[in-house]
Nucleic acid binder design. Structure first.
Lengths: 371, 371
DNA sequence: ATTGGCACTCTTTGAACTCGAGTGCCAGAG
DNA sequence: CTCTGGCACTCGAGTTCAAAGAGTGCCAAT
């Protein structure tokens, strides 16, 4: 469906935008009076009031109670983000700072993500997340078995895009480094180029069959190695800026605060919230009427915002997620995001997250060409 | 100084213990009435009152205001921990559960720590911490350089006690795997057995001098490798159970909550709070009068409790830390701990943390002997 | 030494009340 | 037809006041 330009007339748009801006800044229901004062609408408060009433009718605003000002609804934020807000470009010095910080940790992806997460939470004042790329679909390039001490071996996997995973496993301690090397070489020879998810235990047995190691020993090694490969896809999430969150009004009530802290402490939950956007890189095809949450103004800005209810998570009704996808070479993708109160400075957050993503993509793509 | 048996008579001891127990459980100032009701002191509330007054006089208790019950002071908790509380042994099934969980992740120390931390926070209902061992004083056993792709190399360090660290570095991309292997072998040959902190860049240059690699290239590799070695000592802290904390009364006030969350999010701060106990394994010799915080009932229980003010940390006045030290072979040590409100179920926490520590020590010591 | 009794203190709770921000609606002006 | 000033109305926030209740300290009696 091509962007419906929304049937709001100019005045409604202006006023809705003003309400959201005002509410985001002051965290208090906004009334007609302050709007007239602070935004140069050439209108009386009475006229504004009637417009506000209409916007409420349309479901973009609501009143906590009669005789209070208006507050945006999820729908209000949604349209604000999709059509009303203005994305201001980042000041050049901020950009430079981000570039510099990220450049420093370009060699290690975990470090890069930690760094990115730190930057985002610091710059936006909310909580930030960074998820490692899933590597199940990436390809095995190298595999090494290093004997740490008799009976313990470090399995080193080199995957697509130069991603490295390793893990210590236990093996029969009669094996020596040479035998291990032969096994590793055999596996590498046969399975290099396979996607991790496609590697079965059987394939490994076939690959290593002629490595001149007694079968029962061999099988133990292979099994442990195979397990290590399977576990390479583990999710790791970096969360930064927790304390920021507790600064915002909506979390002064502890129970809300706890809900959010819990959510952010639960890897599983985070993953669930970040994952869904993975497939949808190009855009389109998002869920049902109201749940449809994919927000892009064009295919060129593939960030996604999920607001309050849209998250469909008990306890996170007062939160929003802004997420985006970074790219490593060879189709590897991961996501980074910002979590904050629903009343979030969306434009600010989106500007930052977009730039961080862009910088990561850029750095990782050109990584090999810098000395 | 040999344990002064404290000049409190039996009644005072009983009552102080009761006050602490009661307060820990109910989080409300405890009055003479409820003490008489709930604990079988064969006394009237009036007598209890006078004892309470004396305990207050001695600085073990205080009143939030006249006409409120009593609350333990830091000193009150201190003596409670040092002399009054009863450590109940863990039920066998809990022990078994802990053993089982830890045994699963014995091969990877980070995983083990994550696991331990998870167990502690879950079992105690507070926040738990686990710090990786510092490896600056550990010894280099093996070093490998694995070429990930041209220009990028994985430096793998095997240290004392089979601890593994690795890191990707960037090197001139004209070098090939064989040259790297020669360099690594040369370094390993010469420097195996050295403590990491003693390894200087010069030593590495000397060690690798005859590896038949052009000097300027060699130096770049050596420098990156040396950096990787230096950075092997990075601190990593695992924190678990944050949301637990917000359940407790003392953190319903957000500002307190934020202080704690901030502290727990700051690696530096955590480290500072956990480190000081490292040297004092055997016991004795702790600081000045009131600050002296090392609490052990005998050399066999080397845990340490730091209560409120004793932490000397702005914002953590309402918290306590219980920490202890786990041991890897070859003198490597790290620490695990629990953070909670000052009003903490100390005996419960100490029982758990002691057992976890003991289990870790045991598992790691005998790691190599299990198949 | 212990205890029952009593006066006193200080917080908590809730009701009643005022204040003010904000609304909806309407009649009249442009 | 649109906009505006005016007005009555609503509802939460804050204040005040009194009563309730928990707990204390002290003392005289056992």
């Amino acid at each position: 469906m091509p962007k419906e330009p929304s049937r709001l007339d100019e005045r409604k748009r202006t006023i809705l935008r003003a309400v959201v801006d005002e509410y985001v800044e002051h965290a208090e229901p906004v009334g007609s009076r302050s709007l007239v004062e602070r935004y140069s609408l050439n209108l009386s408060s009475a006229s504004v009031r009637s417009t506000l009433a209409e916007l409420e009718q349309l479901g973009y605003l609501e009143q906590p109670h009669t005789s209070a000002g208006r507050v945006p609804t999820d729908r209000g934020y949604r349209i604000y983000i999709d059509e009303l807000m203005e994305l201001e470009p980042l000041p050049e010095e901020t950009k430079e700072h981000i570039r510099e910080q990220l450049r420093e940790s370009i060699d290690e992806i975990p470090e890069l993500l930690r760094q990115a997460s730190g930057l985002l939470s610091q710059e936006t004042g909310y909580v930030s997340l960074a998820l490692q790329p899933r590597v199940a679909s990436s390809v095995l390039r190298q595999i090494k078995l290093l004997m740490i001490e008799p009976g313990r071996v470090l399995v080193v996997l080199v995957l697509s895009a130069g991603v490295v995973r390793d893990r210590i496993v236990r093996i029969p301690d009669v094996l020596d480094q040479h035998q291990l090397q032969r096994i590793a070489a055999a596996i590498e020879q046969q399975l290099a180029g396979c996607q991790l998810r496609d590697i079965s235990f059987i394939m490994m047995q076939l690959a290593a069959a002629d490595s001149q190691v007694p079968e029962s020993l061999l099988n133990q090694v292979l099994f442990e190695t195979w397990t290590a490969i399977q576990q390479a896809d583990q999710l790791a999430a970096y969360v930064d800026g927790m304390p920021n969150l507790l600064r915002h009004r909506e979390f002064h009530s502890i129970s809300r605060a706890r809900d959010v802290v819990s959510a952010l402490s639960s890897d599983g939950l985070l993953t669930g919230l970040m994952e869904p956007l993975r497939p949808a890189v190009g855009s389109s095809g998002h869920g049902g009427a109201d749940a449809g949450a994919l927000a892009e103004r064009s295919a060129a800005v593939p960030w996604m915002v999920r607001i309050g209810q849209e998250l469909q998570q008990e306890g996170l009704e007062d939160c929003s997620f802004v997420t985006t996808t970074y790219h490593l070479p060879e189709q590897l993708v991961g996501s980074i995001g910002v979590v904050g109160p629903r009343r979030m400075a969306y434009s600010r957050v989106i500007s930052h997250i977009s730039f961080v993503r862009q910088t990561i993509d850029h750095l990782l793509t050109w990584r090999s060409s810098r000395s």
